[in-house]
């Protein structure tokens, strides 16, 4: 046997990178796509979007193995990685170095945001069936409070940045992009992807406020 397999270091790092892309990154894209449909209103959102998912067979298995466990590993190991570096964004103000620093900062921010976000939706729904029955109303009431809206906006942008920048670095890690030219070019592709994803996400957040029948409670 060779040391790359005997020594788990390499495999763990690559697993961390891979999980960040699929399933976590893929789920983020799917999640933002689903929520971009909020502006079609409560009935559509609750029945066609959330309802279709809630009716999925083996939903809990998917949630556990495709979202929760990979995210837990990625976040936990991400914190381990964090301890082995020290960014000096002031001394070295180069773009890639700032992104290196922001990748770590956004990772920590995401842990806090995701704890809150998952706690207030999925976990709260376990205890209060009314929440999962009308997720649209639940989210709408929350997002109508400016501090909550601000928090979600920040959380969304952190996640999108982390994924888009992670995509660019993962391409170097796996050896897809090798030349400086290719790395720069793919960096722009990732930036474009991030902007699109952010637009879709913001559209989804605003959708809760502008959907037909929305604003009644305000």
């Amino acid at each position: 046997m060779s040391s790359s397999i005997e020594n788990s270091h390499f495999l763990l790092r690559r697993l961390h990178s891979l999980l960040g892309l699929v399933p976590i990154g893929a789920f983020l894209v799917f999640h933002l796509w689903e929520n971009s449909q909020s502006r079609f209103g409560a009935a559509h959102y609750n029945d066609e979007v959330v309802g279709a998912l809630q009716g999925l067979n083996y939903l809990l298995v998917f949630e556990l193995f495709l979202i929760a466990l990979p995210l837990l590993f990625h976040a936990g190991y991400g914190l381990v990685i964090l301890r082995h570096g020290r960014a000096e964004p002031r001394r070295y103000g180069y773009l890639r170095n700032r992104l290196y620093w922001l990748q770590r900062l956004s990772g920590v921010g995401l842990i806090l945001f995701l704890l809150l976000h998952v706690g207030l939706t999925r976990i709260a729904g376990l205890f209060d069936p009314a929440i999962s029955a009308d997720l649209f109303g639940h989210m709408q009431r929350a997002l109508m409070q400016p501090p909550v809206f601000g928090l979600y906006l920040v959380g969304l942008l952190l996640a999108v940045f982390h994924l888009a920048n992670g995509l660019a670095t993962a391409a170097i890690v796996w050896g897809l992009t090798t030349s400086a030219e290719a790395q720069r070019r793919f960096g722009w592709v990732c930036a474009g992807f991030g902007l699109l994803l952010a637009a879709m996400g913001v559209h989804g957040l605003l959708g809760f406020l502008i959907a037909p029948g929305a604003g009644g409670g305000a």
Partner: peptide, 9 residues
């Protein structure tokens, strides 16, 4: 290699 964080300084 995996300990590189791609800061590219």
């Amino acid at each position: 290699l995996s300990d590189c964080g791609n800061a590219q300084n």
